[in-house]
Design a protein around this nucleic acid. Sequence first.
DNA 1: GCAATGTACTTGCATATGCAAGCAATATGC
DNA 2: GCATATTGCTTGCATATGCAAGTACATTGC
Lengths: 148, 148
Amino acid sequence: MNDLCLTNTLRLLQSADQIKARLSGDFASVHGLSVNEVFLLLHLEQAPLHRLSRVELAKRMHVSASTVTRMAAPLEKIGVVARQTDERDARLAFVVLTESGLEKVHEARVTFTKQAGYVFRDRWTQEDLEQLSGLLHRLIADAPGNLT
Amino acid sequence: MNDLCLTNTLRLLQSADQIKARLSGDFASVHGLSVNEVFLLLHLEQAPLHRLSRVELAKRMHVSASTVTRMAAPLEKIGVVARQTDERDARLAFVVLTESGLEKVHEARVTFTKQAGYVFRDRWTQEDLEQLSGLLHRLIADAPGNLT
DNA sequence: GCAATGTACTTGCATATGCAAGCAATATGC
DNA sequence: GCATATTGCTTGCATATGCAAGTACATTGC
């Protein structure tokens, strides 16, 4: 039982590393973005008003606040996100998706979908996929920022 | 169908990030190792003669060769791995697990198993776990260096 | 046998990231 | 209301990592 938990955890992490390695090449060449940058944009896309505070982004991406600060800077420079302050709380500095950023994330989603298709290309039935989807959902259902 | 592939890929990557974040704290405090270092040791543990060349390690870990070179250095310094050359091919520089390294990896496996138990702690039946195990296995079955 | 090519590893440089400290604004206790 | 604590963000420093170039060795083609 516990060994099965270990097996599953190892397989999950190894699968993720493998998939991430495949994705990173594509995003870099097609969109000039890293996998993590695409995830940041996806989080903003699904957020109300297409914006999130930096700490909220950090929590959802499982990175530190400083990482979000530093990831946002170049994304601002290329115009896909902007900085927005809150009227009530001057500490808050939202990261908000721009029009251009919304386009970018739609393009990235196409690439992502295509690559995701390759990952499961062989011998995966609709039923298999739904089964996996359901099981994985249980791992992230309670966490904030589920992108699915 | 393709959307299901995307959903699964997103969920897989998000689950992995979440789990990795949980693990990293534990390995650091309990063993003084990073998650990636533990994976390196696990790869060596399961390899014939408990050793692998640096490029082989790089492939299995989905990192660059230079990363392996640099990861091995501090691990050598603390004595858990050693460098070993090949008689036939002087280019090869194996990373080999020492006795101390073997102990370390057994300890780390205990921690890993415990944390893996927490990940699946609630409402996961034996059958659920076996189902997930089987599905994830198909994602990494063909890749070299499956740790399970 | 030797030149050309390929492979294994290392290193310099650039980027990415976490932690701890610092700063500014808000919230809390009294 | 004011001192203290907390929160959100940024920055300095250390570590981690990839890419490209360099080095040493092996393999191939002739």
